[in-house]
Simulated scan of single mutants.
Amino acid sequence: MHQYTINASIQIVPIVLDKHPYLWVDDAIAIIQQSGIKYEVTPFATILEGTYEEVMRVIHQVNEFLYQKGCAEWIANLQIQIRSTWNITGEEKTGKFKMENEEGNTKY
């Protein structure tokens, strides 16, 4: 696969009773944070940005972590956008909708 930047979203939906599902999601986000890949946590999914290989490695690490830590069952919803000849970034797609409030914080 090429070395252009791609976007992906991953949403983990734990189907468990052993602990609150958010705790499993928090663990999955920690794996993403430790990966060094560019990411953005949103209320429904985490957006990943990197090369195809980097993004797929992180997705694999998240699923492997959940498996190794004993998460009984989960759904991993994925969306991936790839361009064959140049980078695709989240900023390109959503930047025009962001604005800053008076405190300098980004509002969506």
Rank of each mutant, 00 (worst) to 15 (best):
H2A: 13
H2G: 12
Q3T: 09
A8D: 04
S9T: 15
I12L: 03
V16R: 00
L17T: 15
D18H: 01
K19Y: 02
K19M: 04
H20N: 14
L23G: 13
L23Q: 15
L23W: 13
W24L: 02
D27V: 09
A28V: 09
I29D: 05
A30V: 07
A30E: 15
I31R: 05
I32V: 09
I32D: 02
I32G: 02
Q33T: 09
Q34R: 13
G36H: 12
G36L: 04
I37G: 11
V41L: 07
P43C: 07
F44Y: 11
I47G: 03
I47Q: 11
L48Y: 06
L48Q: 08
E49W: 04
T51G: 00
T51W: 03
E53N: 15
E53S: 14
E54Q: 08
V55I: 05
R57Y: 09
H60V: 04
H60L: 11
Q61E: 15
V62G: 00
N63E: 08
E64W: 01
K69C: 09
K69T: 08
C71W: 00
E73Y: 09
W74H: 03
L78A: 01
Q79L: 06
I82S: 02
R83N: 12
S84F: 12
S84Q: 14
W86S: 15
I88A: 13
T89E: 12
G90T: 12
G90A: 12
G90K: 09
K93M: 07
T94A: 12
G95K: 10
K96P: 01
K96H: 10
E102P: 01
E102T: 07
G104K: 02
N105H: 08
N105D: 09
K107N: 09
